[in-house]
């Protein structure tokens, strides 16, 4: 259900762009979704088709670029890659890590006509 709300936000952003950038149809939407953003990509794909019906982005192709979760490990003092928020540092096993990337939820680009 959270993904539906995110799709509604995407629709509003696209419709705003349609007005300001003067296009009537979106062929492709490219999103960037971080591994730690809390978004379920499959649910987002499902919600996208439903929410975009009747909009300029109805039938648009959805590309999702998934970015890795990264964190700064305090004991190791290096950036490490993590898959989930509660993962420990893969080097030292510590939970003293600070998430530095992978929380993104962005529309990267639109292909429009």
């Amino acid at each position: 259900m959270h993904e539906m709300a995110i799709c509604e936000n995407i629709r509003v952003l696209i419709e705003e762009q349609a007005r300001t950038q003067h296009f009537s149809r979106v062929e492709r939407v490219c999103l960037e979704i971080g591994a730690l953003s809390g978004v379920e990509v499959e649910a987002l794909r499902f919600g996208f088709d439903v929410v975009m019906r009747g909009s300029v982005a109805a039938d648009a192709r959805l590309d999702i670029v998934e970015t890795a979760g990264t964190a700064w490990c305090l004991p190791c003092a290096v950036t490490v890659t993590i898959g989930r928020r509660y993962d420990p540092c893969p080097r030292c096993g510590s939970h003293q890590i600070q998430v530095t990337g992978g929380e993104e939820m962005k529309i990267r680009e639109l292909e429009v006509t």
Partner: peptide, 10 residues
């Protein structure tokens, strides 16, 4: 067709 680089936070 044209490409719009948006980089907009959803």
């Amino acid at each position: 067709a044209r490409l719009i680089q948006l980089e907009a936070d959803i």
